[in-house]
């Protein structure tokens, strides 16, 4: 069962898919790059901690000034401690939201980032709220 659902390519290096079907290719000159296997791995760049990183998708426009647009994918890392001014996925009184978290002595305020709309107001968080910071947003993936 170990990670069973998470192995997209169990074909081993030595016995690649093609060589199984057509046999190994015998060619003349060995490639000087044969033993050098390097490539850029986006996941390594964007996912610092594989145990604690999750993805969310944005629905709504309260954070457009923080570069979070409808449909963007947020990379959220639970290993990062919430800090003053961080953008975080929060859970408040039964609902998810993403806001800038301003922390002060006796609580916090969830700040929207949308200058063009008066619709979004800061949400004060006090002891009466059922509140948790689910995880801090570390990257935003968006379509250019």
């Amino acid at each position: 069962m170990k990670n069973a659902s998470f192995v997209p390519h169990p074909v081993t290096d030595t016995e690649s898919f093609e060589s199984l079907l057509v046999g190994a290719v015998k060619a003349g000159f060995p490639s000087p790059a044969e033993d050098v296997r390097e490539k850029l791995d986006l996941v390594k760049l964007l996912v610092r901690h594989t145990a604690s990183t999750f993805f969310f998708q944005v629905d709504g426009v309260s954070m457009v000034d923080a570069d979070m647009d409808e449909g963007d994918i947020l990379i959220v890392d639970r290993a990062v401690d919430p800090y003053n001014g961080c953008k975080a996925v929060c859970f408040i009184d039964g609902e998810y939201t993403v806001k800038r978290v301003v922390i002060h002595d006796d609580g916090a305020v969830l700040m929207p980032c949308n200058e063009h709309s008066t619709h979004y107001k800061p949400i004060p968080v006090g002891p009466d709220n059922d509140f948790l910071v689910w995880g801090v947003v570390t990257y935003i993936i968006k379509k250019a």
């Binding site: 659902s5 998470f6 999750f54 993805f55 969310f56 998708q57 944005v58 629905d59 709504g60 426009v61 309260s62 954070m63 979070m68 994918i73 947020l74 996925v89 609902e95 998810y96 939201t97 993403v98 806001k99």
Partner: peptide, 14 residues
């Protein structure tokens, strides 16, 4: 499947 399918990521209304 929040963590294993792109089409099923958790959505946040913001």
């Amino acid at each position: 499947c929040y963590t294993t399918r792109w089409a099923e990521l958790p959505k946040v209304r913001i």
